[in-house]
């Protein structure tokens, strides 16, 4: 005879019923399938498009082997892409720090300033980098400068948000010690807030740099200069073997920069 005590049968735990979990999984799958069908229909993707593989096959054929000997002409544009990213990261990183301090609730000197900086931060973050690129292109003309300005804004958005969160989680006891010595707000921030957030801040700036190298490539596609622009030219003139070479080149450099930056960040925090 089975004795059931506290959900135990003969002193052993009873496995929970799996019916509920299976029903939930089935519902989730159906939902996903429905969403896929709905989206595909919406943008006009049909099975036919997938079956039309001959074009894809031709594309692959033309793309390989990569145009290896094309690389010397890529060095300068790629450097320009990286330079756009460096400028955007530096300008943005510098501007992000004061904004982050003002937007950190526990550190901010006044409510109105806190509110204002928070909203500035949110607006900057909501707009995609392409929008800023277009905006600055209208202001200073298409080119690398507009690109680095767009990345500046993008960097401010990313770094200020992350840094202000770090600043909100610092130990405020140290802040009190500086105030007890007669320090004003700026001195208190300088000697108690910044030393505590500095490693994280630098790590966020490096992270933004990694994002910026990639974003800078994309901005090139819309005319901000650098390797993205070369990629676009070769693509529109159907030089697919060169396109492959460019993609490989970008891949190698972006990966290398990411690895270096990530290693530096690991040492920081």
């Amino acid at each position: 005879m089975n004795s059931i005590v506290n959900g135990m049968v003969n002193g052993r735990p009873v496995p929970p019923s799996r019916v509920r979990g299976r029903v939930l999984a089935a519902v989730a799958l159906l939902l996903l399938a429905g969403l896929t069908a709905w989206s595909a229909a919406g943008i006009g993707v049909t099975l036919e498009v997938f079956l039309n593989a001959s074009r894809i096959g031709r594309l692959v054929e033309e793309s390989f082997p990569p145009a290896w000997n094309f690389w010397p002409r890529l060095v300068k544009p790629l450097l320009e892409t990286v330079q756009i990213a460096i400028l955007g990261t530096l300008f943005g990183g510098i501007a992000a720090l004061p904004l982050a301090v003002l937007a950190a609730r526990t550190v901010s000197p006044s409510r109105p300033l806190y509110w204002l900086s928070r909203n500035v931060m949110n607006v900057l973050r909501t707009m995609p980098d392409l929008f800023w690129a277009m905006l600055f292109a209208s202001a200073v003309g298409f080119g690398p400068f507009a690109g680095s300005l767009a990345l500046t804004v993008f960097t401010v958005a990313v770094v200020s948000k992350l840094t202000s969160e770090s600043a909100e989680s610092i130990d405020l006891k140290l802040t009190e010690a500086v105030r007890a010595s007669g320090g004003n707000w700026l001195e208190t921030v300088w000697f108690s807030v910044l030393p505590q957030v500095l490693p994280q801040y630098v790590s966020y700036v490096l992270y933004a740099f990694e994002l910026n190298v990639r974003a800078s490539t994309v901005l090139g596609l819309v005319g901000a200069g650098g390797i993205g622009m070369v990629l676009n030219t070769q693509r529109t003139t159907f030089q697919y073997a060169r396109v492959t070479m460019i993609v490989l080149f970008i891949f190698a450099v972006v990966l290398a920069i990411e690895q270096l930056s990530a290693a530096a960040r690991r040492r920081l925090v």
Partner: peptide, 20 residues
């Protein structure tokens, strides 16, 4: 701030900037 400058304070948990 001027008054505080004339009063030194010492805390149980020291409250130093460790990385400085």
């Amino acid at each position: 701030r001027d008054l505080r400058a004339s009063v030194g304070m010492i805390f149980q948990d020291y409250r130093l900037v460790r990385r400085l």
